[in-house]
Design a binder for these strands. Structure first.
Lengths: 106, 106
DNA sequence: AGTACAGATGATTGTTTAGTCATATGACAC
DNA sequence: GTGTCATATGACTAAACAATCATCTGTACT
């Protein structure tokens, strides 16, 4: 499949859907500053291993994290090029609108 | 509620969840370049009015669109400050990763 | 006040998603 | 090869979501 033939719409859905889940967002957050293996992610987040693996798979799938094996462990790191500016942008948005977001006021 | 007391995590979920839905994304897309009222959005997208209203409510709720009444109509426009750079960022990401995203290759 | 147009809301239902359990694979050490 | 640690996968169920339907509110015009 060439990039031109890709179905961009579906890709958008997968991309944003990946960040919409609270647990995946937590995983991204603990990886924000340093790479970690699955066990370390579990410890940092308190999540179960299978759940973390499932969610890492999805994040990897969307190009949000990269991974590499080191001996018995597989280390994951965020795709800094996308994730860092994205989170920065959204942080600013939420700082400004979070109250509206959470209360639903119009 | 002051910004400091906000529950940011929930806000992130609402924010990204809003963009994860294909129909909401279409609505954002047709508003990307010009403001439109609900009827016009329906015409541009082919969606039903009630569905559009429900989804606009959510987008408004997240600070992604703003609205103002003009006579009988209510016009919606995107929050350019957030949406434009966001979409630009994601466009670049997806151009690079969409094939992986859609095929699931590792 | 009555009608018509524009949009919003609430309830219901079918679909999607996500966490959990059981199990499988992969890598290393002995 | 066997055991153990690290991670991945598939199937299943429960919870979340989103579209639809029926109905309601708001504005303008007469």
């Amino acid at each position: 499949m060439t990039p031109k033939s890709c179905n961009y719409d579906a890709a958008y859905g997968l991309f944003f859907g990946s960040l919409a889940n609270h647990n995946r967002f937590s995983i991204i957050s603990v990886l924000r500053d340093e790479k970690k293996n699955v066990t370390e992610i579990c410890e940092s987040t308190g999540f179960e291993q299978t759940m973390v693996s499932h969610n890492l798979k999805r994040l990897d799938h969307c190009g949000m994290v990269f991974s590499e094996r080191e001996g018995k462990c597989r280390y994951y790191r965020v795709n800094e090029k996308t994730i860092k500016p994205l989170l920065k942008l959204i942080d600013a948005h939420i700082k400004k609108y979070c109250c509206k977001i959470l209360t639903g006021e119009r």
